[in-house]
């Protein structure tokens, strides 16, 4: 049995994955194939731990931690079978730099069609800044290797694993890239290239202040991400809600855009907040705090 490679993949690409390969055999490993073709069973992620919550009970804990990297968030999971890891996570005070090794974990709600991807932690270890930077570099290099493979594949889409290998593409990459091609078609490679560039820029002093995560907001569908938008929207309305008529919708829209919130997300957030009874619409085009 060869040990599974610990892939270095950026959070955003990991979270964008929708292809899970699970063979029928018991105890056979499951693989997540990312849009650019990393075929991941084990992952090694380093980032800034930003939150840790126990979403289970005291007896049956289910720790969910969020780890930020230059592109988004990893969701780190430690349940009953990862009690040691859970114990470490629960003792940590965010923010800290954290290294995580873990296995792919994917969940599709019974009535949903979207797959939620997280990492079932095998081990976590507090690290320092240089290890985070080193991880970003390794992840960037890994992504670049895959993008290079796509470039070769775009010139000759009929190349198989051997064909790619003869162009110098490692087998572990070639296989995943072909699987990705079959499932995702041709992913938005320009987008992942830009993400890669932004991530690398975080390592260089001349780009100081231009943090990639501003350009690549984390997906907002799952758990905390959505809550973050909601609380930001609430804050914006609070700031703008001056007269008796409430805040003007256009002003909210502008302020939201400055915070990296799209009009669609803003509308959804306001709807949720109205449902929750935190906001109301006194007249059309005005929003007020309850």
């Amino acid at each position: 049995m060869e040990r599974e490679i610990a892939w270095r993949v950026f959070a955003r690409e990991y979270g964008d994955s929708t292809l899970l390969l699970r063979s029928g055999e018991e105890r056979a490993p499951a693989y997540l194939v990312t849009p650019t073709g990393a075929k991941v069973n084990r992952i090694y992620a380093v980032g800034t731990l930003v939150s840790v919550e126990n979403k289970g009970t005291e007896e049956e804990p289910m720790w969910i931690a969020r780890l930020n990297d230059p592109t988004g968030f990893f969701f780190i999971f430690a349940g009953q079978h990862q009690r040691d890891v859970g114990a470490v996570l629960s003792s940590l005070q965010p923010p800290v730099f954290l290294a995580v090794t873990g296995k792919v974990r994917a969940y599709t709600p019974p009535d949903g069609d979207r797959m939620y991807v997280s990492v079932r932690a095998e081990g976590v270890h507090v690290v320092e800044g240089p290890q985070y930077d080193d991880w970003i570099l390794d992840s960037a290099r890994s992504l670049k290797e895959r993008l290079d493979a796509w470039k070769i594949l775009s010139e000759d889409p009929e190349l198989g694993v051997e064909g790619l290998a003869s162009h110098g593409v490692g087998r572990h990459i070639a296989e995943g890239v072909l699987l990705a091609q079959e499932h995702y078609g041709r992913p938005n490679l320009g987008w992942y290239r830009d993400m890669l560039v932004s991530a690398l820029q975080t390592l260089l002093p001349e780009y100081d202040g231009l943090h990639a995560s501003h350009m690549f907001p984390a997906p907002q569908e799952e758990g905390g991400g959505g809550e973050e938008v909601l609380s930001r929207v609430l804050e914006i309305v609070r700031e703008l809600d001056e007269g008796p008529q409430g805040a003007i919708w256009e002003d909210i829209l502008d302020r939201a855009a400055e915070s990296g919130i799209t009009p669609e997300d803003l509308e959804e957030a306001v709807e949720i907040l109205i449902d929750r009874g935190e906001l109301y619409e006194p007249v059309l085009g005005r929003i007020k705090l309850v």
């Binding site: 240089p130 960037a140 670049k144 002093p205």
Partner: peptide, 19 residues
Amino acid sequence: AVDVESEARALLQEIEGGA
């Protein structure tokens, strides 16, 4: 010993040069 900064710069140049 990894010189992250110079390796990142080299990688960036390779990507932007090869675009």
